[in-house]
Design a binder for these strands. Structure first.
Length: 572
RNA sequence: GCCCGAGUGGGGUAGCUUGGAUAUCCUAAUAGACUGCGGAUCUAUUGACCCGGAUUCGAAUUCCGGCUCGGGCGCCA
């Protein structure tokens, strides 16, 4: 699908190529979008100077004289070594608006790719409620999945359920051995919040009491030996936790397409197969019964270059099972994407190298994010120094409710609650999605729950305002006549709309999802400028055209919100 | 100690992949606009590229060296 700007850029390139040919050369050049206001498109002529052995200023001037201002090009001029273009707005207005009217939420959608993508995200340990330290994972993962889907990829999202290992086993032990009266019951009435108290106490016992250590170790051993009783008990605990985590994720509009259980790779022998294969690799060595690969030649190391894949007792390790999981993923998909916390970087490198040694040519594509921390430091479920997602969501909804009640006394209680839910939840997703994943993020209540400026409510409000105009307008004829949309604010708005497809490509192809909130704010802001400057309903012969522009804006705003996983209420 | 990230106005943030013209936007502060199609709005002003070198006609962007912060360096997950 060709978007308006693709056609424009192609036409401009053709004209430049023609100009260069008349000069008797075919040098490479970059066609860039200069800072707003200077020009629409520009070619810096400095890099050509060497090849043409002429000063950049002269090159730009000669090219400007050689290229005619016709068709899509309205004006060509040279400025201090730049070749500048002003493009024909009329074409942009007509093609953009017609495109949006016709495709609505499919505007900017890419052609279907033949490839299947498996995107793993969230995969948090099911040992406690999800907290905001990990909040970036589901939000980044789900937003990326939405954007890539919009770009035409066939995406399946998957949660890898960590039901093997000390954490869940310890929790299961705690549920059986800790007297419920010992557990602090101040938490909320939700299983994950109830269970986490057992987990914290169990951790303390484990540190203090050697007998507990022995008991838990024996449970772990039985689990790894495939003891059905232990496995089922642990699975039961995990299922309880997972269901509640799912409920939390659901409130912020995140749903996973599938769940893969780590223990499956023990039960079906895939983890053992990995061990057998790795044993035959030349880098494999043994120490005290434990097996490891020496990754010296790959320059990947922690304390040393050894990467252990079994314990001395022959049981497998997390990364060993993760290898089995990745081979399974590669069987199911063409591309495998993992959204991971930055603490997984080393493990992920080791995993990729080990897979390579087994003859797997593909590697997972990883998106790492840094953790959200509190002003006083890192969050820890074990230590109880956390802000839970459920609490953050509640707080956001409460604050949103107060705002709605202030403004909309006419609405029913139920409707106010409903709108407050959409606004509060959206604000959380937006505040996380707008920051580049690798940037450190310190959690502040006021910032996460900011409803002004560059925030979800600002986008939602602009959308609701557009809906309101369209509601009041009733029937109108959809028209996209450039001669009737000549006001600078109208032209600016059309330009903002026309950029959406490019932004979506940036999000889906380059994984720059934070570009979407940035763009959304620009679009909403441009719409608000148009709104104060230009009457719509009472604008006589312009009415239909302006309503068409409002409708197109509404579709694109909704499209932005949809790809961010944020609700778009028609009133608020 | 070694490895990997991040440092942009008072606070937050975009731009960095592919060097280019006047560094984006929010917030804050100050001053203003509107009986309007919804004021969760709009306009104006103030204010920043961690430090030092190098490459270049040109560096927030590339390279080298520091500093500060986060993460990693388990026969944990």
């Amino acid at each position: 699908m060709n978007e308006p700007w693709d056609d424009i850029r192609a036409a401009v390139r053709k004209a430049i190529d023609g100009g260069l040919r008349s000069m008797g050369t075919e040098v490479d050049y970059v066609l860039e979008s200069p800072p707003a206001g200077i020009a629409d498109l520009a070619v810096p002529c400095f890099p050509m100077a060497k090849a043409l052995r002429r000063p950049p200023v002269a090159i730009a001037e000669e090219l400007a004289n050689l290229i005619p201002a016709e068709n899509m090009i309205r004006e060509v001029w040279a400025d201090r070594g730049y070749l500048n273009f002003r493009i024909n707005d009329d074409f942009l207005v007509k093609s953009t608006l017609e495109d949006v009217l016709q495709r609505r939420l499919d505007f900017g959608k890419g052609d279907t790719r033949g490839k299947i993508v498996l995107l793993e995200h969230t995969s948090v340990n099911p040992s406690g409620p999800i907290h905001v330290g990990r909040a970036r994972n589901p939000i980044i993962g789900d937003t990326l999945a939405r954007c890539m889907r919009h770009c035409g990829y066939d995406i399946t999202t998957e949660y890898y359920v960590n039901d093997v290992g000390k954490q869940v086993v310890l929790l299961t032990w705690g549920l059986e051995n800790i007297d419920p009266s010992e557990v602090d019951a101040t938490g909320r009435d939700k299983d994950d919040h109830r269970l986490v108290g057992f987990y914290q106490i169990a951790n303390r016992r484990l540190e203090e009491d050697p007998d507990v250590r022995t008991e838990v170790a024996s449970m772990l051993q039985r689990f790894e030996d495939g003891d059905a009783e232990v496995i089922n008990k642990v699975r039961h605990t995990t299922e309880m936790m997972l269901a509640e985590i799912g409920t939390t994720l659901d409130t912020i509009n995140v749903s996973l397409d599938s769940f893969k259980w780590e223990s499956d790779f023990i039960v079906d022998g895939a983890a053992k197969d990995i061990v057998d294969s790795l044993t035959r690799v030349e880098q494999c060595h043994e120490e005290g019964g434990a097996l490891y690969l020496d990754l010296n030649e790959f320059e990947v190391h922690g304390k040393d270059t050894r990467f252990f894949f079994t314990r001395g007792d022959g049981t497998t390790l997390y990364t060993t099972r993760d290898m089995a999981y990745h081979l399974d993923k590669f069987r199911r998909a063409d591309r495998v994407i993992d959204v991971l916390g930055e603490d997984q970087k080393l493990g992920s490198q080791q995993l990729t190298i080990a897979l390579g040694l087994l003859g797997e040519p593909r590697a997972p594509e990883c998106l790492f994010y840094s953790f959200v921390s509190l002003p006083e430091g890192k969050m820890s479920t074990r230590k109880g120094t956390v802000v839970y997602m459920d609490d953050l969501i509640d707080e956001a909804e409460t604050r949103a409710y107060e705002e709605v009640r202030k403004r909309r006394e006419d609405l029913s209680e139920e409707r106010m609650r409903e709108i407050a839910r959409i606004i509060g939840r959206g604000a959380i997703r937006h505040s996380i999605a707008k920051v580049q994943p690798e940037k450190p993020l310190v959690f502040h209540w006021e910032e996460a729950l900011n409803f002004e400026g560059n925030s979800a409510p600002y986008l939602q409000y602009s959308h609701a305002r557009a809906c309101s105009i369209l509601r009041k307008a009733g029937d109108y004829e959809r028209r996209a006549d450039p001669d009737m949309l000549v006001d600078p604010t109208e032209r600016k708005l059309v330009r903002a709309i026309s950029r959406f497809p490019q932004v979506m490509r940036d999000c889906g192809e380059e994984w720059r999802i934070n570009a979407l909130p940035v763009y959304g704010h620009e679009l909403a802001s441009t719409f608000n400028q148009f709104y104060v400057a230009t009457p719509v309903l009472s604008s006589g012969k312009y009415r239909d055209h302006r309503l068409t522009l409002v409708e197109c804006t509404m579709w694109v705003l909704r499209n932005v919100l949809e790809n961010l996983g944020i609700g778009a209420p028609e009133e608020m």
